[in-house]
Amino acid sequence: MSQDIYVVIEHLRGQVADISYTMLAAARELSRATSGKVIAVLLGHNAKNLARDFAADQVLYLDHASLAEFTSDAYQKALAELISKDQPRAVLFGNTSIGADVASVLSMRLGLPLVNSCRSFTSEAKFISQICGGKIMAEGELPSPTALVTMVPGGYQPDQGKSVESPPVTESAVPALEALRVTLSKYIEPESADVDISKEPLLIAVGRGIQNKDNIELADALAQAIGGVVCASRPVIDQGWLPTSRLVGKSGKHVKPKIYFAMGISGAPEHVEAITQSDTIIAVNTDPRAPIFNVAKYGVEMDIFELVETLTETVKQAK
């Protein structure tokens, strides 16, 4: 039984995911309330070097050939053993394709309480979770003895979870990972060598408000005039109006442009989580209460179709 906060680091093919740093930042805040340490838990195989920039007091490294790539079964087994042995105050997982496969299972297996979709912690060690598509927040005491938590982005900046100094790394014992029921067979790359929107400095993003495929041209014209790239929320991608490589959000790319110009996007948390690192968000939406205005620095309450062509013209003239 300790007051430490464990953070299960997520990484995929040699890349540490942003959510890991967000969680480290959250853990830091939580550890102040519990007066414990922040401990990054890294599972992998020959992956110790990933532990370079974690803002953690310590890194526990679990090395095993079966942990080389993420699979739910192996992660669950390794972590179940670690958590029951160390009994930290809390274990943070990403509410992601990796973390969500593990946290709930461990909650059942170990009989530990689970807090889902946590966005931030208060200074009194309370969690605040966001549910109902971001429309409702739920607050409560961090459950005991060990709280398993899945975290969504938005509450902390990933940069807050990075440090210049490498934390000390301790290898931790890994249980026998045998008779695994889930194994990775291969990765399938996403189609296309399209532009990488996560590296673009100026994004024109369109949401369901763009209404149909033809109207994407309007956004394209604006993007061309201004020198940006068009990206979109999921409904637009689902319709096949733009390739998957242009998807911004939880299931797409996280972006950090100088300007994120969002048209007809409501600002669902799954979308917003991927844009909070933009320098400036500007949103155009007919609904003054659209949540996107809560993350945008500037807002325009207007019909896209009233604005976009005029704007394109104005931009062209300004050049």
Binding site: L12, R13, A17, E69, F70, T71, T96, S97, I98, R181, V182, T183, L184, S185, K186, Y187, I188, E189, P190, E191, T244, S245, L247, K250, S251, G252, K253, H254
Partner: peptide
Amino acid sequence: KKEYPGGLIAEMEVT
């Protein structure tokens, strides 16, 4: 087929 952010897909074999 398990989806990861960015469109990467992992094909997993499951018993």
